[in-house]
C-alpha cells in the first residue's frame, strides 16, 4: 500500500470509478470509549468538484467525520480513502503528504494570535517546506508572494502586517480560508466555519467559500447549522444523527422540513437506517 501512496505513476492506474470519488468512507466507526460512539458505521462517497454540507446536532459526528478525513483522528474500524490513498493506517509521513492536498477551515479559526496575518497564511505552506520557521522572513519569498495573493483574494491584503488577533471574527475566518487556499488544495474541509460569526460575516464567508470552490473546482465538505444556508449553498446534503448517516441526497430534492428533521431529538426513521437513541 505504501508503494501506491508514494508513486504518482501507480496512482494514475487507479480505476476511474475510484477517481470519481475523491473521498470515500466505508463502514467507518469511531469509538471514543466503550460507551461513547463518535461514528457508527458511516459510509459515504464524495464526488470531485461537488459541495456537500453535513447537517446534524452538536455531537452527531460532523466534526469527527471531517477530522477523520483529514487524518487528525484514526477510525476504530472501517476504511477511509482520500485522493486515491487509504489513510486509516497511513504513517505520519504519508498523512502529511495527503494533508498538503486537503485544506481545513476551523470554527474558531485557529490562527496564531500574536503572529502577523501574512505569516499565518504562510503557515499553510509548512507542509511543503522543510524545517520550522521562526519568523515571516524565514519563509521563501515565493511563498510570501503566494500568501499575499491569497490575502488579496479574500480581500485582506491591506491587513497583511497586522497581528491576526486584531482582526474581527469574520476577517480572521477569511485569513483561515487564505491559509487553506495557499495549499492549493483539491479537497476543502470546513468544520462549522460560520458558527462563531454574526449573520453578515457568515454570509460573506459562505459566499467566499462558494466562489472559490467554483473557481478552483474544489471538492468541499462543510458542516453547517443553518439549514437554509445549507440548502442554498450545497449540491448535496448529508444528515448525521448519533454518528449515523440518516439523510444523503442532492440538495434540490431535500425540502426544508426534511432537513430540519435531522435536528429533531427523536430519531426519524429513514429508509435503510434503523435508528437508536443518542448514545453517550
Amino acid at each position: 500500500m505504501s508503494t501506491i501512496l508514494q508513486s504518482p505513476k501507480v496512482q494514475a492506474t487507479v480505476p476511474s470509478e475510484e477517481q470519481r470519488y475523491v473521498v470515500e468512507l466505508k463502514n467507518v466507526t469511531k469509538r471514543f470509549s466503550p460507551t461513547v460512539l463518535g461514528l457508527d458505521g458511516v459510509s459515504a462517497s464524495f464526488e470531485a468538484g461537488k459541495v456537500t454540507v453535513l447537517l446534524g446536532l452538536s455531537g452527531s459526528g460532523k466534526s469527527t467525520m471531517l477530522r477523520h478525513i483529514s487524518g487528525l483522528q484514526r477510525p476504530t474500524d472501517g476504511q477511509i480513502s482520500v485522493l486515491g490513498h487509504r489513510i486509516e493506517n497511513a504513517s505520519d509521513t504519508e498523512l502529511r503528504k495527503i494533508r498538503r492536498r486537503v485544506g481545513f477551515i476551523f470554527q474558531n479559526f485557529h490562527l496564531v494570535g500574536p503572529m502577523s496575518v501574512l505569516e499565518n497564511v504562510c503557515t499553510g505552506k509548512l507542509g511543503t517546506l522543510r524545517g520550522p520557521r521562526l519568523s515571516l522572513l524565514m519563509y521563501p519569498r515565493s511563498v510570501r508572494i503566494e500568501a499575499m495573493e491569497q490575502l488579496e483574494r479574500v480581500g485582506l491584503a491591506d491587513r497583511a502586517f497586522q497581528r491576526a488577533d486584531t482582526l474581527s471574527g469574520g476577517q480572521q475566518q477569511r485569513v483561515g480560508i487564505a491559509r487553506a487556499l495557499i495549499q492549493k488544495p483539491e479537497v476543502l474541509l470546513a468544520d462549522e466555519p460560520v458558527a462563531s460569526l454574526d449573520p453578515v460575516s457568515s454570509a460573506q464567508v459562505i459566499d467566499l467559500i462558494k466562489r472559490i470552490s467554483r473557481e478552483e473546482n474544489l471538492t468541499v465538505i462543510c458542516s453547517l447549522h443553518q439549514v437554509e444556508l445549507a440548502l442554498e449553498f450545497s449540491d448535496r446534503i448529508l444528515g448525521l444523527q448519533s454518528g449515523r448517516v440518516v439523510l444523503d441526497r442532492a440538495s434540490t430534492s431535500v425540502d426544508q422540513q426534511e432537513a430540519l428533521q435531522i435536528y429533531s431529538k427523536v430519531a426519524t426513521p429513514s429508509p435503510g437506517a434503523s435508528m437508536t437513541p443518542l448514545a453517550g
Binding site: 483529514s70 503528504k97 494533508r99 486537503v102 485544506g103 481545513f104 503557515t123 520550522p132 520557521r133
Partner: peptide, 26 residues
Amino acid sequence: GPQEAIRAAGGGRVQQIVSGIVVPLM
C-alpha cells in the same frame, strides 16, 4: 488550535511546535 491547523495543513511536529507554540509564547 493553531498547532492543529498547521498539522491539518501537513506541517510536521517541529513545525507545529515552533509556529503554533514557541512563537505565540515568546
